[in-house]
Design a protein around this nucleic acid. Structure first.
Length: 554
DNA sequence: CTAGGTCCTGCCAACAAAT
DNA sequence: ATTTGTTGGCAGGACCTAG
């Protein structure tokens, strides 16, 4: 991270890394064209949902009372297997921060920069964000936040395994992850080809994003429709926003197309529109509509139509052969139902709104159920997670609801761990110690690498080959983050930098050196090693602070 | 090719809040 | 006191870049 941050600051001119990065993530097949949204952050991904070749018992059951999360889905159970983590073909245009945002970042406007393809939009976002100084952060944050669909209720999409398999198999050959990558593609489309899909594509609308965000929407919209964008990228270089990054991991992404040009208001899809066919997105595909207990069941003929569904609605999808039944709770209805006391009424009406709000607060994902396994799909970048906590953590990259400022410089991170690692670079502390030779290293990767290369041993083996010493320079678990809402920055002084390590959660954090509980003395538990950095407790500052001397050898 | 670096995400323990 | 939810560290894999 540190390096990344640093790079970000200086990387401006060379978009190449970023480009390269973006390119690397692009599937082998390079799209011929990709649409570029000027300036508009776009996350485009493709989906290939093929409803062919498998038969499903298609049952769409949704109980009317259900909360958004209640979905009953019957599908053929197929041994999971192919979820690939591969890259998807999804292409994302990074949110190119508007001028106010991260515009200054290198890639954003570089004409030469390729569009971001790849699923790494989030990463790029992250990195971009990372580069921001606190001041910058705000603006960037806003742009990022805009993409956050906080008001949406999670959508649940249930896919049959066969479907996944086929699509997944197509997208990648080797999968390392359990989480599925799903590409939804119009049936006739071939991944490799044209960029012309755009017209046909339906745009998926993310209501969520569109609807309530007062901020500019980063829109998630992908310029091109889903399918086209990801699978087919255009040689032309979009103004990709991204930049960033190195070391990006390819991820699987489930993408939902989004309407590129739609305006927030336009993005909303109403049942009435669907029924009447007024909505262009649905006009062609609606075969039927049903109304049941507050729900509309719509059978769509094509995958595209599915793509066109507003994500802002609860969408329960059963995918059958060439047919897609989607139950969309009437807008507003679902929300109301959420507040219904059928589950655990908290209190009276007033509370229902509160409750709703709480739910909404977490509406940042879709749930994809495959063979009984639930995957959590980030609404913004469509990454899938097996653990909801992972998604939550990841989502902050988009929302920047919490910011984690470095206590030694003005860098801000979207994840606590990134901040912590960065700070360790400031301190130079080496906590990982090789038990074989006694050398100490700054992180696990270096340590493991050392053990493998120097000692020819497997650090992940049964025998412990290294020791992780307690962190002396930083106090862990202080929950020292900053929320967007708070004007004050706990743990950070007026200058935006906090040098004090001890922080508390109760408003005194960062301002005092006296933590609620006195930390144990490092000297008691830490025995300096020859190669280790030498810490010296600073008497004047209290027990929580240390003067850190970075060995020259570091 | 290798070393060093970043990013990502499952897992889990420590906390905090709610019941 | 117990349960539930949140936070953040750790492990280790994947990938990237530089030498």
């Amino acid at each position: 991270m540190p390096s990344k941050v640093k790079d970000g600051a200086s990387e401006t001119s060379t978009s190449s890394p970023a480009q390269k990065d973006a390119e690397t993530q692009v599937p082998a097949i390079r799209p011929e064209s990709q649409e570029v949204m000027d300036g508009m952050p776009v996350i485009t991904q493709s989906f290939s949902l093929r409803g062919i070749e498998y038969e499903t018992t298609k049952i769409t059951v949704s109980d009317s009372d259900d909360e958004d999360d209640d979905v009953i889905f019957c599908s053929e159970i197929v041994p999971p297997k192919e979820c690939t983590k591969e890259t998807n073909t999804a292409t994302q245009n990074q949110p190119c921060p508007s001028p106010a945002g991260v515009s200054d970042q290198k890639s954003c406007g570089s004409g030469s920069s390729p569009h971001l393809t790849s699923t790494t939009a989030a990463q790029k976002l992250t990195s971009s964000a990372t580069q921001l100084s606190p001041n910058q952060t705000q603006s960037s944050t806003e742009s990022l936040v805009s993409a956050t669909p906080q008001h949406l209720t999670p959508n649940i999409i249930v896919l049959n395994k066969p479907l996944l398999n086929s699509s997944l198999g197509a997208s990648s050959s080797h999968q390392t992850h359990v989480t599925p990558t799903i590409n939804l593609v119009e049936e006739n489309q071939q991944p490799s080809n044209n960029g012309s899909l755009t017209e046909a594509e339906t745009t998926a609308v993310d209501d969520e994003e569109a609807v309530e965000d007062d901020v500019d929407i980063i829109s998630s919209s992908s310029p091109a429709s889903v399918s086209s964008s990801s699978l087919v990228q255009q040689p032309s270089v979009p103004k990709a926003a991204s930049t960033e990054g190195s070391g990006v991991q390819k991820k699987q992404v489930v993408t939902f197309s989004q309407e590129p040009f739609a305006k927030p208001g336009e993005l909303k899809i109403k049942i009435s529109d669907v029924l009447s066919g007024n909505n262009k997105e649905f006009s062609s595909g609606v075969a039927s509509a049903h109304v049941a207990e507050g729900q509309k069941i719509i059978t769509l003929d094509t995958a595209t139509e599915i793509e066109g569904l507003s994500t802002g609605c609860k969408v329960y999808a059963n995918i059958g052969e060439d047919t897609y039944d989607i139950v969309i709770p009437v807008k507003g209805d679902s929300e109301e139902r959420e507040a219904k006391p059928d589950e655990t009424p908290r209190t009276s009406d007033g509370d229902s709104s509160d409750r709703k709000r709480m739910k909404v607060k977490h509406d940042d994902h879709y749930e994809l159920i495959v063979d009984g396994r639930v995957y959590y799909i980030c609404m913004v970048c469509k990454r899938s997670y097996a653990c909801l906590t992972s998604l939550r953590r990841h989502f902050n990259v988009h929302s920047w609801e919490k910011k984690y400022p470095c206590r030694y410089c003005d860098k801000v991170f979207p994840l606590a761990e990134y901040r912590t690692k960065h700070e360790i670079h400031h301190t130079g502390e080496r906590r990982y110690q090789c038990l074989t030779c006694g050398k100490s290293f700054i992180n696990y990767q270096i340590t493991a690498s050392h053990i493998r290369s120097v000692h020819s041993q497997d650090p992940s083996g049964d025998t412990k080959l290294y020791r992780l010493n307690p962190c002396r320079s930083l106090q862990i678990r202080q929950y020292a983050y900053i929320t967007d809402r708070s004007s004050s920055i706990p743990g950070i002084n007026e200058g935006g930098i906090v040098y004090r390590v001890g922080t508390g959660k109760d408003g005194t954090e960062g301002t005092t050196s006296d933590p609620p509980t006195k930390p144990i003395s490092w000297d008691d538990i830490f025995v300096p090693q020859g190669n280790e950095a030498i810490f010296k407790q600073n008497p004047s500052e209290g027990s929580t602070e240390f003067e850190f001397v970075i060995p020259e050898s570091y």
